[in-house]
Nucleic acid binder design. Sequence first.
DNA 1: AATGAATGAGAGTTCATTCAT
DNA 2: GATGAATGAACTCTCATTCAT
Lengths: 215, 215, 215, 215
Amino acid sequence: MPTSTWFRLDVDKRDRVLHAAMREFGEHGYSTGSLNNIARDAEIAKGSLFQYFSDKQEFFAYVCDETSRRVREEMERRIAGLDLDQPFIDWLTDVCFVWSEYFAEHPLERGVTAATNFEIDNSVRAVVRDTAVQHYLQVVRPVLHLWRDKGEIRADADDDVLVSLLLLILPFIAMAPYYDGIDPVLGLRGRTPVEQRPAIRRFVAGLGPIFEPPR
Amino acid sequence: MPTSTWFRLDVDKRDRVLHAAMREFGEHGYSTGSLNNIARDAEIAKGSLFQYFSDKQEFFAYVCDETSRRVREEMERRIAGLDLDQPFIDWLTDVCFVWSEYFAEHPLERGVTAATNFEIDNSVRAVVRDTAVQHYLQVVRPVLHLWRDKGEIRADADDDVLVSLLLLILPFIAMAPYYDGIDPVLGLRGRTPVEQRPAIRRFVAGLGPIFEPPR
Amino acid sequence: MPTSTWFRLDVDKRDRVLHAAMREFGEHGYSTGSLNNIARDAEIAKGSLFQYFSDKQEFFAYVCDETSRRVREEMERRIAGLDLDQPFIDWLTDVCFVWSEYFAEHPLERGVTAATNFEIDNSVRAVVRDTAVQHYLQVVRPVLHLWRDKGEIRADADDDVLVSLLLLILPFIAMAPYYDGIDPVLGLRGRTPVEQRPAIRRFVAGLGPIFEPPR
Amino acid sequence: MPTSTWFRLDVDKRDRVLHAAMREFGEHGYSTGSLNNIARDAEIAKGSLFQYFSDKQEFFAYVCDETSRRVREEMERRIAGLDLDQPFIDWLTDVCFVWSEYFAEHPLERGVTAATNFEIDNSVRAVVRDTAVQHYLQVVRPVLHLWRDKGEIRADADDDVLVSLLLLILPFIAMAPYYDGIDPVLGLRGRTPVEQRPAIRRFVAGLGPIFEPPR
DNA sequence: AATGAATGAGAGTTCATTCAT
DNA sequence: GATGAATGAACTCTCATTCAT
């Protein structure tokens, strides 16, 4: 948890710090990210960071938390706008579309998401991933239940499996267009959201039988 | 490519260096892994590493290549020993079992695999992931075709989707038991291979419909 | 340019650092000069140097600039004190005397001047020589014009040639007494300023005809 | 002195070593030049260098000696071809032209000459400069006497001064076109030999009165 | 005579963190 | 509360030289 100083901080400054941190950690990850760079970019004194956060790890955790929350809130909003009167698979495809668009539009959030997924240090990742996962789950579980209640999901489908699968797929779609070696097969790397759509559609369609009852 | 010196090296020493490198990189990843530590563990002079590899990145790439090759060879061997006279899903479950056992038995290979997956630096990851992925593909594609020829895979299944999915699942199964935040749902974390079996069986079963033709 | 930290620094410490740097660079030149040695001599932490200068080259450039400025300022002062009511050649001889005395009294400045002249790396030398040369020119050009106006310099003398020649001679006189192989003919090596005088007088007298109008 | 092994060496190999050394030392100077690079370029074992020369300094000294000798021999040849039936200054201008052309055509010799002039370490420079200077003197002194005997040199000119001056001018002309900060006035930097001619002619003409008797 | 692996000191540079002001 | 100078350990990498083969 950040110190009380942090929360009492001038909003502009807090934004500058958060912005700089998302950029730095998003680009270089936790251990390679430099507090020097963050302080310089945010135009604050190096020492000030330690008035706000007890150490680098806490700082990184806070940045990840904050990012997860933003992503989750915005995604809930966007998902709420999707058409529920269509087959589940089409709806899920739409979800992946807005997800892909969101990360195209938000490079900072994308970077931090990548940093979260790419962190190798177990004690660091344990903290940041846990928070992120909670956010994912709080979005994914309810909507799955909703669709199950609508009878659009196979009766024999295992909820935990579906959730686990979505937890694999979503980061994949978010990062594959921007990082090498994530998707060597479908061709998402380097594509704009519009260009990604055929591959995403294909991917989700292929996974369809896991979710949908046979017609 | 390592220098010719490396290949002319005394076998014991080469093993010591490779072992130490797998340990260090596997534990801390590329950028946080320390050549100092590797040299100390391998009981060679710091400078000697640079007789074998031109720089850290080449060294890391070599360690990853070597590891991928080992994993692939051993897995091909183990997969070849599995019973083909069973339903595809049961066979795939068996594959995941031996996969899970392999990484339980080989902490070094597991660590390097993690380092490969967790590397955030794009230019580094591009190189090491590419090699790893080639190995995966050379195993996965042929066996999928084999099963398709046996009529055990849905005619309408999209090959690339199946491959992409397997490329997501395999690292997941390999790493989930040993790293926090990978599997928050199925409970693989901290389990022995035998204890992992129910969760793996459940997971693979849930994915079954995209592979198997409806009966 | 040094960082703002450098200029805010305690004067004693700044002097210690500059002194140590002039000594080290003056003795060993840019590439062989060691920041370790400088930090040790100045009694600061190695890392502190990088609070003051962004890298070694900038540090060296600063030391050279500073030295050029000092040399120039002091020489202007000393030259201003010379008798203008004498033939040009005698005045020029006096200039060379004070020049020779200055470098005898200032081993640090002499060393840095040598380092500037002896630097082989083109990109480094380009920077440090350029600054030094500007200082030389700002002293040399005006005094030549002064003497020309007094009618003591041949009307047909080519200004640029005279300047180029002085730019060759001054470093020669400064360094010849202290470095082997610079002056194998006139015997300046190893002499005190007083002992250098006959050779300097001889040398300047020999060059006289290009300056002085025939009488 | 190189070992007897060196002189017994296969001519091709000796040439390769000398060529590589001239390149490396000529580009980076003595202390920054790397024996590793030389051995690699010459395609010999690193250790072999130490069969030929007792250490780096002796090696460098040998390379400089050899270069000085080559320069001197070739320059004697070229100077011998110049027209003696012209005024001294025109002849000296011609000498500077062939000198300038020689170094344009011989980048290796030019590099080593620069390395000789730019070496800051006194014990190293003492050795290499001394040899170079002897070569210069053996060319310069006799021709000056020749011209003096022809009555083309002022009777009151001081031989040692003329020699010293030439020892300053010749390296200046050789290096000014290729190194920054050597000639900030006449504009030799970056020019081809033909383009250098006007500046050289101007320079030598300007120095003329030092040498020639008034007409 | 030639090789080339081994060495370890030393290079410049970065870094998270501390703490006096 | 903010500052920013100071720290020193750690980093990757280079080097001339040695010596067993």
